[in-house]
Amino acid sequence: MVEYVCDSCQNQICIDRCSRRAVVIPSKYIGRPQSEQEPDLLTGNEQSILKVGESVYQPPQHGWTHDLIERYVNAYDKRHLNGDAWDVYLGSHWCGSSEI
């Protein structure tokens, strides 16, 4: 995920000369295979329920994709900054955590 930050901004409001820069925020979702040797947790689970922390999401009509799951996980992460630990499951497969 890419977020844009500015050292001159406070609460997204510029107080000086704006100098936004892109910062890559690591994802809490690790279900995407990083090499050909790793299994793809999504294969066969495209219609499984996604659980992110306490939130449960039904699969979309055309099934989950890694990009879509990552968006849900990143959105949940932004909303839940209270310090509580949470996990990500696709069906019964663990595929992420706030602890990553």
Rank of each mutant, 00 (worst) to 15 (best):
Q58F: 11
P26I: 03
I69V: 14
V88F: 15
G83S: 09
N82T: 13
C18R: 14
V73Q: 05
E99G: 05
S92E: 15
Q12C: 05
D87S: 14
I15A: 09
P26G: 06
G91F: 14
V2D: 07
S97W: 09
A22E: 10
C14R: 06
D67V: 06
G44L: 03
Q37Y: 03
R71D: 15
D77I: 04
E99V: 07
D87H: 11
G96D: 11
E54D: 13
Q37P: 01
K28L: 07
K51W: 01
R17L: 08
P39K: 02
G63S: 07
C18V: 13
G83I: 14
Y57L: 11
N74G: 12
R21M: 13
G31P: 00
P33I: 04
S55Q: 09
E3S: 09
G44M: 01
A22W: 00
P59C: 02
E36V: 02
V2Q: 10
D84W: 05
Q12L: 08
T43H: 01
C95T: 09
L42V: 03
S35M: 00
E70I: 03
Q61A: 14
I49D: 04
V23C: 06
C6N: 00
N45Q: 08
E38Y: 00
D16E: 15
P60L: 05
H66C: 07
S97Y: 08
D77H: 08
C18T: 08
V52T: 01
Y4F: 13
K28A: 14
C9T: 08
H93F: 11
C14D: 05
K78Y: 10
G91P: 15
M1P: 08
V24C: 01
N82P: 03
I69L: 07
S48C: 12
C95Y: 11
P39R: 00
E46N: 06
Q10H: 14
L81H: 05
G63Y: 02
I100F: 12
S92W: 12
G53M: 01
N45M: 00
Q12A: 12
E70P: 04
E70Q: 12
R71I: 12
L81S: 10
I15S: 14
C14I: 02
N74T: 12
R17G: 10
S19G: 10
E99I: 03
S98T: 04
D77L: 07
Q58E: 13
P59F: 04
T65F: 01
R71F: 08
C95E: 06
W86A: 07
S92L: 14
D7V: 07
D16S: 14
I15K: 06
S27F: 00
M1A: 12
I100Q: 11
P33M: 00
L42A: 01
Q12S: 12
E38N: 04
I30F: 05
Q61T: 14
